[in-house]
Amino acid sequence: MDPEGNETRALFDLVDLDAKEVLEIGCGDGRLTRRFEDRVAHVTAIDPFADAIERARARMSGGSRGRVTFQDVSFERFVATAEPATFDVAILSWSLC
């Protein structure tokens, strides 16, 4: 998907992710996560579908694992337990509608 890298290019044009604490909402199988995780300090990537998160974890390279935390949790549950003012960037990844 997106072999031209149009989505990644647009993302890097719009926001500086270097050394940032990032929350990705609706990460699915981690398709987009894998394309930006090497820039960030840490990314918490959430999705309510456990099977998608399983695939995301399986596809993440070993060297990236410390930088990425995948969680199968709905945004409502996540926001209820997360500390406020934790993230520099939130990416709403094809999930608002």
Partner: peptide, 24 residues
Amino acid sequence: MVHALEGIRQLLRSNGVLIDIHPV
């Protein structure tokens, strides 16, 4: 959706940024 956006605001630091991606 509005509640989700309020929740995101709460989780962001004061200089935080939301990036929304959705189909046209």
